Simulated scan of single mutants.
Amino acid sequence: MSLFWRIFGLNAVVLGAATALLLWAPVTVSVPVGLTEAVVLIGGLVVMLVANAALLRIGLAPVDRLTQRMVTVDLLRPGHRQPVDGHGSVAVLLRTFNEMLDRLESERAASSARALSAQESERRRIARELHDEVGQSMTAVLLELKRAADRAPEELRGDLRHAQETTRQSLDEVRRIARRLRPGVLDDLGLTSALTALATDYATHTGLTVRCRCDSGPPDPGAAAELVIYRVAQEALTNTARHADARTVDLTLRRAPGAVVLEVRDDGRGMGRAREGAGIRGMRERALFIEADLDIGPAPAGGLSVRLTVPLPREERGAA
């Protein structure tokens, strides 16, 4: 039954019932209208309106739920669909909406995959140029400063050594930026070593106490998933250092049935009513890229918890 005929039928039922009551009820209307007659007529009108409103509320409830879902839908939180019952026009509308969400989520995942792939390629290129070109140039400058300091008069050696130390610190910073752009340790030594190095680096440069605990020999989620896990951990630590006002961060990587779970938990002030920024949206896009689940919420003991659950490939699930 179409929505038009459903609403028409509901109103017809109410009006038909009201007409039957007027025909068969022993009530007449005189002129002028008496108090009892007015009370009966007003009461009948109220009953008719209430019944009509209740029936319309029931009939239009699926449309109201659809409207609320359209307002709150977020393609970075996939999987939410409207229940479909029956075969009428409302069911067709709900089914069409669910199919539209399927297409949009698929297109969003594909576009995010292309964007993230291009981003990682650009990061790799910049990191290589920083390491090979800028790093080598600064190393050459450092050697020239050392030779100049060895040959310079005593009164100039202090300034040259100071310039040499400044250049060395700048070279270390360039190398650190290159490592953050493209973690070579992830390719060379694996995810566990990369996360440990990341935690050590953040603890050194931010003053946070970062406790890193990783299960020994976790199953291999794949190269793409390892990079997503590393980037999510990196972004979570960056957000903690910038916004959380925390003192301690716990970074854990553990095995779960059919999955690998990364959790970054701090003891800061949490998100409160703050809206998700570009960093968290980026984490959600990366999670969507590998069909992982990302949960961000308050930690049990206060602060914020970021948990990424990465499904394992089928062959790794059997091994795990």
Rank of each mutant, 00 (worst) to 15 (best):
12 A>G: 05
15 L>G: 02
181 L>S: 11
294 L>W: 03
226 E>W: 01
254 R>I: 07
5 W>F: 12
43 G>I: 01
32 P>W: 06
86 G>N: 10
145 L>P: 06
249 V>F: 06
110 A>D: 08
185 V>T: 13
203 A>V: 00
119 Q>K: 12
282 G>Y: 04
2 S>V: 03
252 T>K: 01
58 I>K: 15
10 L>T: 11
136 Q>V: 00
250 D>I: 00
41 L>K: 13
50 V>K: 12
166 T>L: 15
28 T>R: 15
184 G>W: 02
317 R>G: 02
123 R>M: 09
238 T>S: 07
163 A>F: 06
202 Y>H: 12
14 V>F: 05
113 A>E: 09
157 R>I: 11
61 A>N: 11
102 D>L: 04
181 L>F: 11
54 A>T: 07
127 A>M: 04
223 A>T: 08
300 P>C: 04
163 A>D: 08
320 A>H: 14
22 L>M: 13
211 R>V: 05
105 E>V: 09
172 D>L: 12
161 R>K: 13
128 R>Q: 15
217 G>V: 07
87 H>Y: 14
90 V>W: 04
242 R>F: 07
55 L>C: 10
282 G>D: 04
148 A>F: 03
117 S>E: 08
211 R>A: 03
176 R>D: 06
56 L>A: 05
290 I>F: 01
233 A>F: 06
188 D>S: 12
181 L>M: 14
60 L>K: 00
12 A>Y: 01
301 A>C: 00
51 A>V: 09
68 Q>A: 15
225 A>E: 03
3 L>N: 08
228 V>E: 00
198 L>W: 03
227 L>D: 06
230 Y>A: 11
238 T>E: 12
292 A>Q: 11
95 R>A: 15
21 L>Y: 12
201 D>W: 08
28 T>Q: 14
300 P>M: 02
95 R>E: 14
266 D>I: 11
160 L>Q: 06
216 S>R: 14
175 R>M: 07
16 G>M: 02
57 R>W: 10
284 R>Q: 11
251 L>P: 02
238 T>N: 08
88 G>V: 10
263 E>A: 15
24 W>T: 08
194 A>Y: 04
208 L>M: 10
110 A>N: 06
184 G>T: 11
319 A>M: 07
230 Y>M: 12
236 A>G: 08
220 D>N: 09
165 E>V: 07
2 S>H: 06
17 A>H: 06
91 A>G: 10
49 L>D: 10
250 D>T: 04
237 L>V: 03
116 L>T: 05
208 L>F: 08
190 G>H: 09
155 E>D: 13
91 A>N: 13
239 N>Y: 02
84 V>Y: 12
199 A>L: 02
262 L>K: 07
258 G>Y: 10
305 S>N: 05
72 T>H: 11
299 A>E: 00
85 D>P: 03
143 L>R: 13
3 L>S: 09
68 Q>P: 08
228 V>W: 01
163 A>H: 12
260 V>Q: 09
6 R>V: 01
114 R>I: 02
134 V>D: 00
16 G>E: 04
281 R>S: 12
39 V>Q: 14
22 L>P: 02
6 R>L: 09
267 D>E: 06
1 M>F: 04
92 V>Q: 15
232 V>H: 03
88 G>C: 13
221 P>M: 10
